[in-house]
Amino acid sequence: MKITGASTPSITIAPQAGGPVAAPAAAPVAASEALESSVLQPAQSALKALPDFDAARVAELRDALQKGELPFDAGRLAGLIQRFHGSQG
């Protein structure tokens, strides 16, 4: 048996007097957005409260680099940057 689009019945919804007809799929989408918003709200607030970077950690790493306690290979870093960005000039 072959199923084609021609055998699919068409349904027409006529607007009722007094206003437009709302799409049935609109309610579940709005409900899931509200749920997602209420679930994610605490996490979003916590992220907004954090600084963009940890200044104390950056200072610690900078000191370690200056003292030679943290290995640094400029050639390797350059290669990784070039590989990440490709041959874009």
Rank of each mutant, 00 (worst) to 15 (best):
P24L: 13
L50F: 02
V58R: 15
F53Y: 05
A25K: 03
P9D: 05
E69M: 12
P71G: 02
I81A: 09
D73H: 02
A25C: 05
F72Y: 15
P20C: 04
A17W: 11
L40H: 14
G19I: 07
T4D: 10
P28V: 13
A49W: 15
A17I: 15
A34M: 07
A46H: 07
A30Q: 05
P51V: 05
A17E: 09
A22W: 04
A14E: 14
G18W: 11
K2A: 00
S45I: 13
R76S: 02
S87M: 03
V58I: 10
D63A: 14
E36T: 12
A78H: 04
D52V: 02
A26S: 02
A22H: 06
A26C: 01
L40S: 15
S32Q: 14
F72W: 15
R83A: 14
Q16L: 15
Q44L: 14
A64M: 12
P20D: 02
L65M: 11
L80Q: 09
S37F: 15
E36I: 13
G86D: 04
T8W: 15
I11K: 07
V29G: 07
A14Q: 14
G5K: 13
F53I: 11
A34K: 12
A30Y: 02
F84Y: 12
K48C: 02
R62W: 09
L47N: 03
G19W: 10
K2F: 04
A46N: 12
P51H: 08
A26Q: 06
K2D: 02
A74N: 01
G68I: 04
I81T: 01
Q66V: 00
G68P: 01
D73P: 01
I13E: 11
A30D: 11
F84A: 01
P42D: 07
F72M: 06
D54G: 03
G75C: 01
R57N: 05
S87Y: 11
G89Q: 13
P51A: 06
D63Y: 03
V39H: 07
S87N: 14
S7F: 15
L61T: 04
E36H: 15
A55D: 06
L35A: 12
D73V: 03
P42V: 12
S7H: 13
S87T: 12
A55Y: 02
V29H: 03
V21C: 01
I11C: 08
L61G: 00
Q44Y: 12
L61Q: 04
I13L: 15
G19P: 04
Q41K: 15
S45M: 08
E60R: 13
Q66F: 10
I3H: 11
G18P: 08
G5C: 07
D52S: 08
I3E: 05
L77S: 03
S45Q: 13
T4P: 06
A31G: 05
